[in-house]
């Protein structure tokens, strides 16, 4: 009896995990690591890591040394893009060979966002504003017209309308209806917006998180925004991730507060940090194939994984690493 229970105790979680193995690839960007020392170590502790087995194993891709890799994602055509201190990098072979597509004009790229419908169009959010390419990175154009201040932490291309693009800037949320040619303030004026996310089921629903003012939600494609932070005890929010199958379920990553979860579109938030030893959560992603599997990237605490929707977390990898960005395709 005891042996069979033991068997179930070991095998069932394994089967649960195994069930998460799917076609999707997770991209983890490790900006730096407490274990990394600039110019004095040579371990692939930083840069881009990918996993195709729901985080069971990770493989380093591309440059081994420190280039300040903030974020990486794959476009719909399979091209992998990296936002780095060195600029915007591109790989068309899954991360073996890379090209810095940008010149000296573009630096401190914090996020890249490929147009879901036209993957050769990519936006880069940088410390000096927004840049856009329409030819797969062969050339880039600055796209700052209308921004009060250029610092932009994130760009989001509306998947239902490629001309509609949103930008998270230090002075609020900006929107463009002409593919980034001109920007207008959309909301959250004066607030430092860090990132945004679009509801996977209803593209009109957007969420944005801010440096000091919690989380905001728009149900009309970004025209009006409502604060959804009443029950948040930590108002500095760095990351958002929707449950791909039930979009009323949303996770956010906060500074010092770990992960919060809502089951009602942000009306109420519940802190979910069981098992986390680092509560500065900067990146999140939820597996489309199994939304109970959630990843939380921390700053200096590495990557955590939950297989039960965030109720319990286990350290996964990148001890003392700064997991700045996570994405999944």
């Amino acid at each position: 009896m005891l042996r069979s229970r033991l068997f179930l105790a070991v095998v069932i979680p394994f089967l649960l995990c195994d069930a998460t193995i799917a076609q999707e690839t997770i991209y983890m960007s490790v900006l730096s690591s407490r274990k990394h020392r600039l110019n004095v170590s040579d371990n692939p502790l930083v840069g881009l890591f990918v996993s195709t087995d729901a985080g069971a194993t990770w493989h380093h891709r591309g440059w081994r040394e420190y280039v300040r890799t903030f974020y990486g994602e794959a476009a719909s055509d399979g091209t992998v893009w990296l936002a780095c201190g060195n600029g915007v990098m591109r790989s068309t072979d899954g991360g073996t060979r890379w090209r810095i597509t940008t010149g000296w004009q573009i630096t401190e790229a914090l996020k890249v966002s490929a147009d879901p419908k036209s993957p050769s169009t990519v936006y880069a959010a940088t410390a000096y504003g927004i840049f856009k390419t329409t030819n797969n990175g062969e050339s880039w154009e600055q796209s700052n017209i209308g921004l009060a201040l250029p610092f932009t932490a994130d760009v989001l291309v509306d998947r239902s309308n490629s001309s509609h693009v949103l930008a998270a800037t230090e002075e609020g949320l900006y929107a463009s209806n002409d593919g980034g040619r001109v920007w207008k303030l959309s909301g959250l004026k004066g607030k430092g917006v860090r990132t945004m996310a679009q509801d996977p089921l209803d593209p009109r629903i957007l969420m944005a998180c801010t440096e000091e003012d919690g989380v905001f939600r728009s149900d009309d494609g970004g025209k009006r925004w409502k604060q959804k932070s009443r029950s948040l005890r930590h108002q500095t929010v760095y990351a958002i991730a929707f449950d791909p199958k039930q979009s009323s379920r949303v996770y956010i990553g906060t500074h010092d507060g770990g992960v919060y979860f809502t089951n009602d579109k942000g009306e109420h938030w519940e802190q979910r940090i069981q098992g986390m030893r680092n509560l500065v959560v900067h990146s999140l992603c939820v597996l489309p194939s199994n939304p109970n599997v959630v990843f939380a990237g921390t700053l200096n605490g590495g990557l955590y994984r939950s297989v039960d929707g965030g109720l319990n977390w286990e350290f996964n990898s990148q001890e003392e690493g700064q997991v700045w960005g996570l994405s999944v395709r």
Binding site: L38, W63, R64, E65, Y66, V67, R68, G85, N86, G87, W104, T107, E108
Partner: peptide, 12 residues
């Protein structure tokens, strides 16, 4: 080798 461009004037 990765030639990190850096983030200061002397780096560049």
């Amino acid at each position: 080798r990765t030639m990190y461009r850096g983030d200061t004037e002397n780096h560049w």
